[in-house]
Design a protein around this nucleic acid. Structure first.
Lengths: 342, 342
DNA sequence: TTGTAAGCGTTATCAG
DNA sequence: CTGATAACGCTTACAA
């Protein structure tokens, strides 16, 4: 406590053992005798010693830090995933670094590995450029990457994701059960895997149920945002023939949509039933409360983090488990209702 | 590219200079001649060299990483603040570590400094225990901490915050201008500085406007959450004499409140006007859209990060600037309306 | 089970 | 302006 941080030498001196022994007592307790261990732990207590991470990293050639790479840190959707990730890392004494792909030079992502800042990476952005991913995949760091939430079909990185396809099917079947036959969809960002999977699910369900397919009922939202929903609402209002129910690529789309058509005089669910996707926190308190597909985002984070830890530790998963899909479930609320017989 | 990361030695060899010169060329370009600099940069390019952060940290005794300490990573409220913080650090080549005070052992916060993981800290949690803060304040790391959003009145750490007091005043004055005289408030977590400041603002405004003070109109929400708002709504419904307008400690409280009273048959703003606080993204799309006090959360993050960087670099701010208060502004929307003359 | 000593890849000091 | 060299604080062969 004399101004400078105590180092391992100080502990060794106090305990009356060598620095090697202190190191062992702390990292591999069962390599030293009970007596020595107590001696060292006591000295650590007395001196207030903490292992210097930089020195440890340099020597062990590992940083004990993981990077979570988001498309946009400002997007609240990811906070619960991050929370899940962090809960795992904290218990493993790993630090969590975060960055987003906005603002960052794309090629600097590889630097996190090159300069030893991170031992691994959880990528939550499906829009990372192919070139960079090829580079990563071919590098020695290829085994230290896990995708979460989104993923890249053309690469073989392991990934943890929700059952987007199944969720979309549940949404359509729910509407079908309520008597709806004219069902539409507002999709998210173009070229986004989630958008594609959810769209595919909607189409599969409709085909299965022998519903007729009206291309006009499929609106390209272009994003997962409130604005996208509001924009879609405007297109919707101009349709001559409208669907009686609509599934959305996200809760934000659904809310933006409901908000805008309500402003224009339609009522949900009386005039149209709406299903969201995600079950963000506000969904249950929205007016009307939003029927939606719940994805367990915390679990998503937890699984991704655990998976990455396994990869790094060399505990390889069988190829069959390279893709982990988390079940989703429909939460029925007020935004969907039995189709009124006209 | 032969499997191992190139080190400074390799660059030196290629450039035909000493490692010291390479180091200088990269960190202090003007300490070397133009010619040498080009030589080195070229060699860096050729080898794909990146400075090893662990080695650099060990030698320089600084980590080039900052910790953002949140009360709860899963709370979407903080995502924009984080985004603001990150934007600053990225341009300064600093890494952003995140952690929350849930899950983490409180005393392990100091460890981030002790073990050289972080050079500084932005604390977004006003509930960090006094004991730990005293310890931090008295340590050599006391100058490397900035509070953002929340703060600790009894400590002298610099802080960046919204004008919570002023925001509450604006809310009350807005309602007053609409003709409301019976105004209530639903407060956030007990003992929270934001709760206190906002409450203080409401009271100050009401005093100023000579409004009568009905203690029953002040509901203790106990949290900033949707649930708190819903709970408050239940108390509200049981009042004999009700306020005609209510200000809330947060948007979530407001939405939870509106959602619940709507479910019970009241209408907003016809039966009661409601003002939120924060202007979270959904506020404008809520039904009714929420009149609220907008705080610029991105700016909050940016200022806090910049301030911390100044502190660390030894660019001390005058005491007068130890507390930076960011202006907030009322965004009028549909949840407030002219008081109907009964 | 423990100690000795080398080395992880930088930067900073000191000479030249 | 540049080079040689000594740290920075830890882990891990290798020896004992």
């Amino acid at each position: 406590m004399n101004g400078k941080n105590p180092k391992i030498q100080d502990v060794a001196a106090v305990a009356g053992v060598s620095t090697a022994t202190v190191s062992r007592a702390l990292s591999n307790p069962d390599m030293v005798s009970q007596k020595t261990r107590d001696l060292v732990l006591d000295a650590v207590q007395k001196t207030g010693y903490r292992v210097n991470r930089a020195a440890k990293s340099l020597r062990k050639r590992q940083s004990d830090a993981i990077l979570a790479l988001l498309p946009d840190l400002g997007n609240p959707f990811f906070s619960q995933i991050l929370s899940g990730i962090e809960s795992v890392f904290t218990t493993s004494d790993l630090s969590l670094l975060v960055s987003d792909t906005k603002g960052i030079r794309q090629d600097s992502i590889l630097d996190y590995f090159m300069d030893m800042r991170a031992d691994g990476m959880i990528i939550l952005d499906g829009a990372v450029p192919r070139a960079l991913l090829s580079q990563l995949q071919d590098s020695p760091f290829g085994q230290r990457i896990v995708f979460a939430c989104e993923w890249k079909p053309e690469f073989k990185f392991p990934s943890v994701r929700s059952d987007n396809f199944g969720g979309a099917i549940q949404a359509v079947e729910h509407l079908y059960a309520l008597g709806h036959r004219k069902i539409g969809h507002i999709s998210g960002p173009r070229n986004n895997v989630l958008t594609k999977e959810r769209l595919r699910g909607v189409e599969a369900a409709m085909t299965n149920l022998n519903l007729l397919f009206n291309r006009d009922f499929f609106i390209d939202g272009g994003a997962f945002s409130l604005d996208a929903g509001a924009q879609a609402a405007r297109s919707f209002m101009e349709m001559d023939d409208r669907p009686t129910a609509i599934t959305c690529g996200s809760d934000l789309i659904a809310m933006g949509f409901i908000s805008e058509i309500t402003r224009r005089g339609l009522k949900v669910p009386e005039d149209i039933s709406v299903v969201g996707f995600d079950d963000i926190e506000i969904a249950g308190s929205f007016i009307p409360s939003l029927t939606t597909i719940r994805q367990n985002r915390t679990q998503l984070g937890v699984l991704a983090a655990s998976y990455l830890l396994d990869q790094i530790a060399g505990r390889v998963h069988p190829p069959a488990k390279q893709v982990q899909e988390i079940d989703v479930k429909l939460i029925p609320r007020q935004s969907t209702a039995q189709l009124a017989h006209a």
